[in-house]
Nucleic acid binder design. Structure first.
Lengths: 331, 331
DNA sequence: ATCGTTTGCGAAACTGTTTGCAGTGGAAAA
DNA sequence: TTTTCCACTGCAAACAGTTTCGCAAACGAT
């Protein structure tokens, strides 16, 4: 094992003191230009890089954020991560990524890892299984900023970023109304998740208020397969729905499978509307209309809020990304 | 800013020395059970976590790997990352993720960050633009294990993991032969990438040897749009191909767009075969046949090779994941 | 009473970097 | 000659944790 290059090694090689080397590398005016040149040359030759651990130990600041997510490779998380990493890089931070597989225990392990690494802040998307969020709420008290994203808890006085779920679901309902749909199958996700509740409540509230004469059937599906199953059931009924609303990409993929298998023509026989970042809707033909919920935008917002916290601003509120309707050819 | 909990703080509170606290927390037999209990209680109450930086500084080992990738949110990378993270977690490592956007400069920045963080090893998928890989080849000389994955360079004496591209492309060609296709449009990726060369060479070699009477048209497409364009061109020709082979998911999405738009029936009018991890092919109806190139498997293999390096075994060879044909309904 | 062993704990060194302070020379000013 | 000043450089402490070494005190055996 070759030892790493340190200030000490450079100092010994040049027969000067460590502090001189340190200052020379930072172009400190105290050090003579001759010495600075010598030091810089040797440092470059040896590929010297300062030891982040020593700096972090000294300053008690880490320049690393932790990002805890159910899975990297699931629908929208990748784009969120991509977006946050990009912002981190711009601001000189790095990102440690931890997956929980929706397991609350693993979530706590990840939290511990973040704490051991003295991260400057944590982004977390809670798993639906997590009931006790106390360990997370403790963090801000220890001056570790915490940003909940996407699946945020209801607790007030926390930093949360999410899509404007209510607005987005309402927008979806408006679009369906405008397109004159009269018999809608609306498929939502896991009934326990607050994101589901908010989307469902807003959607149904709007339909109650303005949707006179419209029949809406509400269903919960926990995954793509369940979405597939219930779509199959409803489209083979006598009175088929004339439109299906899917709350998410995951549900859309299940639903589309059933529709394509049944050979139903879109949009002639049935309309489709989903909520998505647009990638999956764009794969189908015709391209599926969607209310855009962008992981990229959410990531940028989350990072902005994180930086505010790091800089001492205590927001402790929920910020949301507004959603827009992107027209496809499926309605 | 509340100060973090340290051994020192616990020691002062209990009026004992730091070393006693350290030993007590590790259940060192030297320390009396009474003292151990006192210390453990207080540590738990204060949510003490050892400072990873202090440990890493002393031991010069980091328990962190760096993973450098063009983009987190692009086709197969998410599943690779997911897989590597999972393995890291199991082995007590963490993962810093860095995106390069296929920019060689950003690649070098990421490398520097990894070095500053004294990562225990680096996984990297080079961007196609990168011509000079010298900075990366230096790493192993400094005892920083380096694993190239997916888009690996040709250099011998490096650790590489990739799909068995030649075997996979040959398998694809075999399948097309078996299905009795006679006029094949084969769309490959960026002509500069070694992964493209290997797949193309193997595919065409097989066709030359065994594909008597089969017409194969080879095309390169740099992205989904180009794949779409060239598919459109060839399927509107007088003598349509009876099968299209896509080298990757990215190409498949472009190709499928053109096929669906043209209303061509699959598999009756045209067969489709792609190389993929299976997610995207499964979205279409009928589901697209593919030769499986799994990011998950590749991630596991990469991690295995990394651990071998960390443990001092110098492999310096290319390992490959064998690919299998997964039958869909598109051939 | 003396010696050896065990128990329980503390002091100090070590990791790499930064930084305030304290020199050390040499030259110029008095 | 002496004082002052300046340009340059080194010393040492601090960050948090681990580890080595060794010191006391207590206890039993001789």
């Amino acid at each position: 094992m070759r030892e790493a290059i340190t200030l000490k090694k450079i100092a010994e090689t040049l027969n000067i003191s460590i502090s001189t080397v340190s200052r020379a590398l930072k172009n400190h005016p105290d050090i003579s230009i001759k010495t600075r040149q010598k030091v810089n040359e040797l440092a470059t030759a040896l590929d010297y890089e300062p030891n982040a651990y020593a700096i972090q130990l000294r300053t008690n600041k880490s320049n690393i954020f932790g990002l805890i997510v159910p899975s990297v490779s699931l629908f929208f998380y990748d784009s969120f991560i991509s977006s946050v990493e990009e912002e981190c890089r711009k601001s000189g931070y790095s990102l440690i990524i931890l997956q929980t597989s929706d397991n609350p225990e693993t979530e706590l392990d990840s939290l511990r890892l973040c704490r051991q690494n003295r991260v400057s802040g944590i982004f977390i998307c809670l798993s639906p299984e997590t009931k006790n969020i106390e360990p997370f709420l403790k963090l801000p008290k220890q001056d570790i900023p915490l940003i909940f994203f996407d699946k945020v808890p209801d607790e007030e006085n926390t930093n949360r970023v999410s899509h404007a779920d209510a607005q987005a679901a309402r927008l979806a309902a408006e679009v369906l109304l405008e397109k004159n749909k009269k018999n809608i199958l609306a498929i939502f996700g896991n009934a326990d998740m607050s994101i589901t509740k908010r989307r469902l409540n807003s959607f149904s509230e709007f339909m109650h208020q303005k949707g006179a004469g419209i029949k809406v059937t509400y269903v919960n599906a926990n995954n793509a397969q369940e979405a597939n199953d219930c779509t199959k059931k409803y489209i083979s009924a006598k009175k088929k729905p004339d439109a299906i609303f899917c709350m998410s990409d995951e549900i859309l993929t299940g639903t589309m499978k059933a529709i394509q298998k049944a050979g139903i023509k879109i949009p002639q026989e049935m309309g489709i509307l989903t909520m998505s970042n647009g990638f999956i809707p764009g794969l189908y033909h015709p391209e599926v209309d969607f209310v855009e919920t962008s992981g990229f935008k959410l990531g940028k917002l989350a990072f902005t809020q994180m930086m505010a916290c790091v800089n001492g601003t205590k927001l402790n509120q929920e910020l949301t990304v507004d959603c827009t309707y992107i027209s496809g050819s499926s309605l």
